[in-house]
Simulated assay, not measured.
Amino acid sequence: MSPTTSADRAGFAHDPAPRLRACFAAIAAGPMAGLPLCNPALEVAAIGFRPWQGEWLGALLTPWSLSLVLIPGGGGVFRPLAADERQCWTFPSGEYAFLGNSEPEIGPYQMCSLYSPVFEFESQADAEAVAHAALDALFVAADGASEADAAAEQARLQGESVAAAPVSRRDFLRGGLLLRGRG
């Protein structure tokens, strides 16, 4: 593992996506440049990073892979792992194993591979759309309910206002506010 930095100990207070993207763009332009496992239609992108359980969750697209990524955010849940170690994380959609990794520019992080290599993607837009869909799918329970649906139902069962439960942009646009009053 790399030397410990202040970001490792406290986590990233702000979105780590720019640093992650810069780190992997340098790898893509350096040691990975021109390798046959790279899809020339793709470039490095750090996609959809958001706070989750006090840590940072997003996707990393490179010309050689598409992975979910967890980066410490100071929430105390993340733990650095060696490259051969796994940690299982539970999302509404199920449990997923993430492998440990570290880069000097960003410190420790964990990855869950979705595609490697990534030749099935014809364009950057296609690959990024799959990354967004994968991130969204993590938060949909096996029964199809989103976290917002579950929070609204829990509030209703406890006799609280369902309007006080959080509403995602997606649920709002799908009419989630109108559907909450039913039940």
Rank of each mutant, 00 (worst) to 15 (best):
G54T: 04
P51L: 14
C88N: 10
L37F: 12
Q154I: 03
P63S: 09
L99W: 11
Q87S: 12
L20G: 05
V130G: 02
L70W: 07
D84H: 09
S123T: 13
A125H: 12
Y115G: 00
L138T: 00
A125P: 05
S123K: 09
T4Q: 14
T4P: 05
G54D: 08
F98S: 05
P117D: 10
A133S: 13
V130D: 13
P104R: 15
A129K: 11
S65R: 12
V167I: 15
A145E: 11
G175S: 02
D126R: 12
E55K: 10
P16L: 09
A164Q: 13
R21H: 11
A137G: 10
G181I: 01
R19K: 11
L61S: 01
W52M: 06
V69T: 11
C38G: 10
S116A: 15
G107K: 06
T62D: 03
D126A: 15
A10H: 12
G48C: 07
S116F: 13
A59T: 04
G54Y: 04
T90R: 15
V118L: 08
E95P: 00
P31Y: 09
P18K: 07
S93R: 07
A26C: 05
V130E: 15
R169F: 08
G144F: 06
A163D: 14
A137T: 02
L68E: 08
E147C: 13
Q110D: 06
A134L: 08
F24R: 08
A165C: 08
E128N: 03
A129T: 06
S65G: 11
A25H: 03
S6I: 10
A82P: 01
A129N: 10
R9C: 02
P104D: 15
T4W: 10
S6V: 10
R9T: 07
D15Y: 04
G75D: 05
L138A: 04
Y96T: 05
G30Y: 06
E160H: 12
S2C: 14
L60W: 01
A26P: 02
L138D: 00
